[in-house]
């Protein structure tokens, strides 16, 4: 699989993620049929859903789409982020390794209300 420069940078960022959860940026064709996919829609100025519950040790794919404007997903405590581009699907594979809560936010300024565009990942036992 050939990676773009941006995808390669994302993979490097993923490698530095904390032990809270491992995550990987995955190309659309790399999603296995049996993997759980959580679809998250970004729009001005909210993620839907904005409260995401995961189970410790169970890998999932976070699948982001937007029909709005260019946005971003960033979970700084995981060391991962991705652009969310209108008309495209962005997927992040995450493996929650530890119970707890992780904040995420839109880190691409998208207008008045951008500052309230955030959410929470809760990892349960």
């Amino acid at each position: 699989m050939l990676l773009t420069k941006r995808e390669a940078q994302l993979l490097i960022a993923v490698a530095s993620a904390t032990a809270m959860m491992t995550a990987a940026y995955v190309a659309a064709q790399a999603v296995a049929m049996d993997e759980q996919v959580i679809k998250i829609t970004a729009r001005k100025f909210a993620f839907t859903p904005h409260d995401v519950q995961l189970k410790k040790g169970v890998p999932v794919i976070l699948e982001f789409t937007t029909q709005d404007v260019f946005m971003g997903f960033n979970a700084p405590d995981l060391g991962v982020r991705a652009d969310i581009v209108p008309g495209k699907t962005t997927r992040l594979r995450v493996l929650p390794a530890k119970v707890g809560k992780v904040e995420f936010l839109c880190d691409v300024f998208c207008g008045s209300g951008h500052e309230e565009m955030n959410g929470m990942i809760t990892v349960l036992d």
């Binding site: 960033n74 700084p76 936010l105 880190d107 500052e115």
Partner: peptide, 12 residues
């Protein structure tokens, strides 16, 4: 510097 990236208080 990354003051608090959770609130977007940083420069990438």
């Amino acid at each position: 510097f990354a003051l608090y990236p959770q609130w977007d208080w940083a420069t990438r």
